[in-house]
Design a protein around this nucleic acid. Sequence first.
DNA 1: TAAAAAACTTGAAGTACTTCAAGAAATGAA
DNA 2: TTCATTTCTTGAAGTACTTCAAGTTTTTTA
Lengths: 189, 189
Amino acid sequence: MQNLLEHIDKFVSLDESEKELLLSRISYVEARKKQFLLEAGKPGYKLFFVLKGCLRLYLITPKGNEQTHQFVIENWWMTDYLAFHNDSVSGFYVQAVERSEVAVLQKSDMDFLLEKIPKLERYFRLCYQKAVGAAQKRISYLFSLSAEERFHNMNDKFPEFVQRVPQYMLASYLDFSAEFLSKIRAGKV
Amino acid sequence: MQNLLEHIDKFVSLDESEKELLLSRISYVEARKKQFLLEAGKPGYKLFFVLKGCLRLYLITPKGNEQTHQFVIENWWMTDYLAFHNDSVSGFYVQAVERSEVAVLQKSDMDFLLEKIPKLERYFRLCYQKAVGAAQKRISYLFSLSAEERFHNMNDKFPEFVQRVPQYMLASYLDFSAEFLSKIRAGKV
DNA sequence: TAAAAAACTTGAAGTACTTCAAGAAATGAA
DNA sequence: TTCATTTCTTGAAGTACTTCAAGTTTTTTA
């Protein structure tokens, strides 16, 4: 959990008793590859923080395709935020892309912690502020680049990440078919 | 500004002196139709809250097309959050779609207010939490529905809004061409 | 280490859009 | 009210993808 404490420490400083209280309300989970942390149709009252590894958030379209919305690596929070905000069932799956170590925060525990440690409001406000910015950026790539440009942009900026995840997941993240990604890589487009 | 105070009041309660302090640091702007509140390439250190009217956030793609990312009506905050978070120049334009009344909060004033009135951390944390959820929802529509389905979904859920904005802006929000929207409406697709 | 399963590749055919160009309708300004 | 400007419509031609189906490679499991 050291990673999480360090991440929080970048934004607000907690004393030892606060850290202890925090850790008493956060659980630790090891997820093996492909394991689900959250499933569509089930209650979405949890936030996940990646300590190590990689998670993805995806949904299944009416046609039955997987669409990856988000990949999250070390030091990011993720969940279905609408379900989390509204205390409703999740529309998304959260799945481990590789063996991962994850901190899990139930919403009720988050509420408890925010009440006891108001400084955490600031921490989450800043995390969310960054998350909204990242979501805006993501939409601008989807909007303004062609499929091929989206792949090359990704490959230029995060080459190690492109190696790290299966191509079909990456294709669904970039919003085109796995076959098309294969053709882009082969230069056949 | 009453709208803003009421909105804040839904999440946290401020006493009179806090309200006064808040209002002393927030400015009021009336924007006529098409007027810009923020322009790409200029500093993006401002948050906007729509008291009345409608704003849109858009960018101009490398090819020269306008892409509307977000429409915002009464009681929502908006800005280029990445620029806001990183104190950098905006990548987006914020423009009044119709005559609008807007509360403007400079980042430096926000920092000041958050320090003096820590309860506001909670207010913005909740606003942002909802905003991340809305962004996720938006991406799922873009991903999983066809152009025609996106239009009908919008028309079913927000018929009055579809009337309220020019079609070419709506088309760019739904990520297809204005001509194609025209054909969808005429049933020629 | 073999067999099974998962992931990737390839080509051919189809389709959901875009682009362009021109005209019509609606809106705004003098 | 009139003219200028902005917005919307229409059809024809083009293109950036998708889908399908089959084969190949890589990874996982027993």
